[in-house]
């Protein structure tokens, strides 16, 4: 159950951001647009559809991870290795996809000079294969 650490932090992050945004809305009662709306608008306008696809996958992985974590806490953690494998697969895939997203994001071109988008995708595939090799081995 201590494995719960990772998800709780990511939950926390979203919760923290949510709380800040609510505070933000309270502070900006006079404003016409609240922060969340600004955020969504900016996101919709500046993000390419490819990145949006990646983001959709990220959201799915996050939801899947959260549901597994809730199952572990509320129902049982009995095959703990199986839980860790499933949850680790979610977290691992999430960070690998997030890495891919960062690498192919045109805004980050200057940061990743040595990694072309094609290379980034190859890295992503290799990382995922290695990750799922261990996941499969650990499912038991």
């Amino acid at each position: 159950m201590p494995a719960s650490k990772t998800p709780s932090t990511s939950q926390k992050s979203s919760a923290a951001v949510a709380s800040t945004t609510t505070k933000q809305t309270q502070q900006q009662v006079t404003g016409t647009t609240n922060a969340i709306q600004t955020l969504f608008k900016a996101y919709n306008e500046t993000t390419s559809s490819r990145l949006k696809l990646v983001d959709a996958f990220l959201v799915f992985l996050m939801l899947s991870g959260i549901s597994q974590f809730l199952y572990c806490i509320l129902v049982t953690n009995f095959p703990f290795n199986a839980f860790l494998a499933g949850f680790g697969s979610n977290v691992g895939q999430f960070v690998l996809t997030a890495s891919l997203r960062a690498q192919v994001n045109p805004e980050n071109r200057t940061v990743f000079k040595d990694v072309s988008p094609e290379r980034a995708f190859a890295d992503f595939v290799l990382g995922s294969i290695v990750l799922h090799f261990f996941v499969y081995n650990f499912l038991g």
Binding site: F80, N81, L84, A85, G88, V91, G92, V95, L96, A98, S99, A102, Q103, N108, V111, F112, G127, V130, L131, F134, V135, N137, F138
Partner: peptide, 27 residues
């Protein structure tokens, strides 16, 4: 930087899961 994110996250996520395959290390 995003490089730090990529490097650390990929190392930790795969490495930790991999390290648990060794029976002596376990959970």
């Amino acid at each position: 930087s995003s490089r730090l994110y990529v490097a650390y996250s990929s190392w930790y996520a795969i490495g930790t899961l991999a390290s648990m395959q060794v029976p002596f290390v376990g959970f």
